[in-house]
Nucleic acid binder design. Structure first.
Lengths: 145, 145
DNA sequence: TGATATCCTATTGGCTTAGTAGATTATTAT
DNA sequence: ATAATAATCTACTAAGCCAATAGGATATCA
């Protein structure tokens, strides 16, 4: 099990925007350079973030992208779901009628617990938290924990 | 994010084996019928479980498959990793040299926490637990919680 | 009006998934 | 012995997704 590049790149990109919150808009080109992501690909990822209302844009020269809300109001869950798509380990979690068998039920509970565990993490952290962590590790120079 | 059919089917299949632990071997055909899975496909999934040592087989008539260890000694993590493959949200978790940038670090922590949360669930439950849950829900008839 | 930067749509190669198909081998019961 | 049974092995395939790449259109500022 692996996260898509979409999610990994996108998370890094929106963190860049969070780090610049309150300042001038950031351009795709800049983010792509800083994060070493293909310009054109990043364009699409940011479009997804914009479509879901997490990011807004300014066109033309001196334009770029801005966080649509304060970092403290954006949970990682929001970003994750936008990029990775719906978090449904098994269909029967959303549509119990898919689950006519008894033994399914026990496994179904597990998939439910897995989903809860993942959401637990992603809901407990906001972009503001990420910014704080990011600045702290920059200060101490401890890139790897 | 969704689990593969491999993992969902395979987990149900090995649960069937756990439910029959100590009894006669279960045949592919039987499991496939009970769980409504393609015979031929299930064959391959069980082969994976056998290759990883969780299941053993007896060939010929009256043959079939058996759990290689008591259900209490098989964590769901073992089954999951066999079927779903290695759980590495991001490459930089295993190879920190992939992580030259500072902002990566904050996201990297998150992927680490996600991995821990998932493993936490999958390590805390064994097939014996699943069997117990399964029998209980069969008794009460509460298939959906 | 030209430069800048977002926006939009289409296309692609490569990989994985979820099977299907068919033949082979080992074991048991008659 | 032999026929039936059930696992084992290998190969193939259609469909879908991923991670880009490409090229042009549109809005905005100086």
């Amino acid at each position: 099990m692996k996260l898509s590049s979409r999610t990994r790149y996108g998370m890094r990109a929106i963190l860049e925007l969070a780090l610049e919150y309150g300042k001038a808009p950031l351009q795709i080109k800049t983010i792509a350079e800083r994060e070493d992501i293909s310009n054109k690909y990043l364009e699409q990822l940011i479009a997804m973030l914009k479509a879901s209302g997490l990011v807004r844009s300014i066109r033309g020269p001196r334009g770029g992208y801005l966080l649509a809300k304060p970092p403290s109001e954006i949970q990682l869950k929001d970003v994750f779901l936008t990029l990775e798509g719906p978090m449904v380990p098994a269909e029967c979690l959303e549509h119990p009628e898919y689950c006519p068998r008894c033994t399914d039920c026990a496994t179904r509970q597990i998939w439910q617990e897995l989903q809860n565990a993942i959401f637990g993490v992603l809901e407990s952290v906001t972009l503001a938290d990420l910014v704080e962590r990011s600045l702290r590790s920059k200060k101490t120079g401890n890139y790897h924990i």
